[in-house]
């Protein structure tokens, strides 16, 4: 009932000009359609809207036009139609980059969300040291991805600590970042290690909204831990799941820093992603037109997967 009457802080009636007249029982008839208090006009935002349009959308669209040229970054260029896109599809190395991008994006999405959710559940209520542990798990998030990657590069080095540990167990040392099969996994580990703390915090925020009473009631009714998670906790944290999975998918699709710092895309392109290929083609090899085509493709892929992911995690209730 109270909810339908409005909260004490509800200023809606005042703003809308429907406050009862002093001393009278009948609400005053609005004298004009304009509210008594106004917070602004839509056109006040015009400069900002124009700036956003110019800086974000017009500039991006202008850059995208180069995807249909053979511009080398200097001098004139010719329009080449869809040649750059055909070249992308014909080049096994670039298809490999696309596969690597998708592998890292979905591996990152799954790893960060599974581990982040497990950490959040573990550190939600009962543990006495949970606040300290939350800080420890979150700490890598605030570090620079490049700095973290260089530390891990040292760890993965042939003469580094990881191989030293393996040597204690009698295992042969490995060239973690130079092995075509291991290097991509190594990049994924570093990405997930640094970002899981962020996902944990998102889930902790979601778990804070789950009423303990309902969980206790379900427990008293004999619901198992898994059923309580499946039918109470998980539906309650659906918004957190949508946010965390969207952010991680986008971050995974545009991975760049970790790849550049750890492997530089090597060995022989085994860890190249679309983002590193965009950089390499555009800035290292001066193929600006081709790089723009790659960037446009990456943008479209991110857009499609983001929309699909939003649809998958939408609250259908």
């Amino acid at each position: 009932m109270t909810a339908t009457m409005g909260t004490p802080q509800d200023t809606g009636p005042l703003v809308r000009g429907t406050v009862p007249a002093a001393g009278g029982g009948q609400p005053a008839r609005p004298r004009r359609s304009r509210p008594l208090i106004t917070y602004g006009r839509w056109w006040w935002a015009l400069p900002a809207i124009l700036a956003v349009l110019l800086i974000h959308y017009v500039a991006t669209a202008g850059g995208a036009l180069y995807a249909f040229t053979n511009w080398t970054g200097i001098g004139d260029f010719d329009w080449v139609g869809l040649d750059n896109f055909r070249r992308i599809l014909d080049d096994p190395a670039l298809i490999g980059s696309l596969e690597n991008t998708l592998f890292l994006a979905f591996g990152f999405l799954i790893a960060t969300n599974v581990v982040g959710l497990l950490l959040a559940l573990a550190l939600n209520r009962t543990l006495r040291t949970r606040y300290l542990l939350r800080v420890l798990f979150f700490m890598p998030v605030v570090l620079s991805p490049l700095a973290v990657s260089y530390i891990w590069k040292f760890i993965f080095d042939f003469n580094g600590p990881l191989n030293d540990v393996l040597a204690w167990f009698g295992a042969a040392p490995k060239t973690w970042l130079a092995d075509p099969t291991l290097a991509l996994w190594a990049v994924l580990v570093v990405m997930a290690w640094q970002t899981t703390g962020m996902v944990m915090v998102i889930y902790l925020a979601g778990l804070a909204t789950v009423p303990a009473e309902i969980e206790e009631a379900a427990a008293l009714d004999g619901a198992s831990t898994w059923r309580r998670f499946r039918y109470i906790t998980l539906p309650s944290i659906r918004p957190s799941l949508a946010i965390a999975s969207t952010l991680m998918l986008i971050q995974g699709l545009r991975v760049f820093d970790q790849v550049m710092a750890l492997t530089g895309g090597g060995p022989a392109g085994a860890t190249e992603t679309l983002a590193t290929q965009v950089y390499k083609e555009t800035f290292a090899l001066s193929n600006f037109g081709f790089g723009a085509a790659l960037a446009l493709l990456l943008t479209l892929i991110m857009l499609v997967f983001s929309v699909l992911q939003q649809a998958a995690t939408r609250d259908r209730s």
Binding site: T175, A178, D179, P180, G266, P267, A268, G269, A270, K280, A284, L285
Partner: peptide, 15 residues
Amino acid sequence: DALSTGVQGLLAGQG
């Protein structure tokens, strides 16, 4: 770049 990455691959057992 093609020569460099190709030789890198030969050293790593690729290609």
